[in-house]
Simulated assay, not measured.
Amino acid sequence: MIFKASNRNDAALFPREVQIDQGATVRLLPHANVSRRQSKPVEKSYWLAVASAEHVRIGREHGFMQVNHGKRAPLKRIKPGDGIVYYSPSVKMGDRDAFQSFTAIGYVREGEPYLAEMGCGKAYRKDVDWLDAPEQPLRPLLGWLDFTQDKNWGYKLIFGLVEFGQSDFEFLEEILMSELEEVKRRRLQA
């Protein structure tokens, strides 16, 4: 930082009692206790979680998420403010009904994963602010989502939680909050 000296006695700028000639260039050095490293803003991540629609609906109703049958490790990767989308291949766990829909979208709240009681045991959860959005079938979106461009896109979903692209998240958020055909028309015009 460079300042031009003036005839003002500015103790905040020049803490030492040194005579400085008017008009001289003065270079101010940072204080020794000041870190030179700029802290990076925390970047948001976006996640695609997989669970039956029945389980997702319970989570939406009570404001939480859980993945991989309640395991803690996957939830540790998710930070407050991250976006989360749930994809449900079936309505009930284990069924092969080809439901294949996005069933929830929201943002993760502050807090660490916590242990909660379920009917069949205990599971780790994280709190989420779910958006009031309807369920959306996947099929009409196949050509519009980046993550479905690979012909084996479904293989990644067996892990239960995968990182998701910001553009796909924003597209789904827009679709779930308005009409699909209207969103497609706007996107084609852009």
Rank of each mutant, 00 (worst) to 15 (best):
Q166V: 11
F159W: 11
Y46A: 00
K156G: 02
E54Y: 11
E179H: 12
E112N: 06
D129I: 02
W47Y: 08
R72E: 04
I78W: 03
D127P: 01
Q19R: 09
I20A: 02
R77T: 10
E54K: 07
L28P: 00
V18K: 13
V91K: 06
E182I: 07
A104S: 07
S52N: 04
D146M: 15
S90Y: 06
S52F: 14
G63Q: 14
S101Q: 15
L29K: 11
T25C: 03
D132T: 11
P137A: 03
Q66E: 08
S6V: 02
G143W: 12
L161D: 01
K44G: 08
R36P: 13
I78S: 04
P74S: 10
V91T: 10
R185T: 07
P89Y: 08
G154S: 08
G59E: 05
A51C: 11
L188A: 15
Y155D: 07
R60H: 06
V50D: 00
V162D: 01
V56S: 02
L131H: 14
D150F: 01
M93I: 13
P30H: 05
Q136P: 03
E179L: 09
M118C: 04
R185Y: 14
P15D: 04
F171I: 11
E43L: 12
I78K: 05
R8N: 15
S88H: 02
K92P: 14
A73L: 04
A32K: 14
M177P: 09
G94F: 09
M177F: 07
V56C: 01
R8E: 12
I158N: 14
T148Y: 09
N152D: 13
G23S: 06
R125P: 00
M93P: 01
F99Q: 01
W47M: 04
V34Q: 07
P89T: 07
R16E: 08
F64K: 00
H31G: 06
P113M: 05
P15Q: 02
A53N: 04
A12V: 12
S167A: 12
E182Q: 14
S35K: 10
K76E: 08
M177K: 15
G63W: 06
Y86N: 08
G94Q: 03
I158K: 08
G83W: 11
E181H: 09
I2A: 15
V56T: 04
A49D: 05
K126G: 03
V128K: 03
L138M: 09
P80G: 13
K44M: 01
R125T: 00
H62C: 03
V42S: 07
N68H: 01
D82M: 07
D168V: 01
E174N: 04
E174A: 07
R109W: 10
L29I: 15
L142E: 02
A49I: 00
Q166M: 06
R16G: 03
W144Q: 15
R139T: 15
L115N: 09
V18C: 04
D82N: 15
R186D: 01
Q136F: 05
E61W: 13
E117N: 12
A24H: 01
V50M: 12
G111D: 05
K126E: 00
K71M: 02
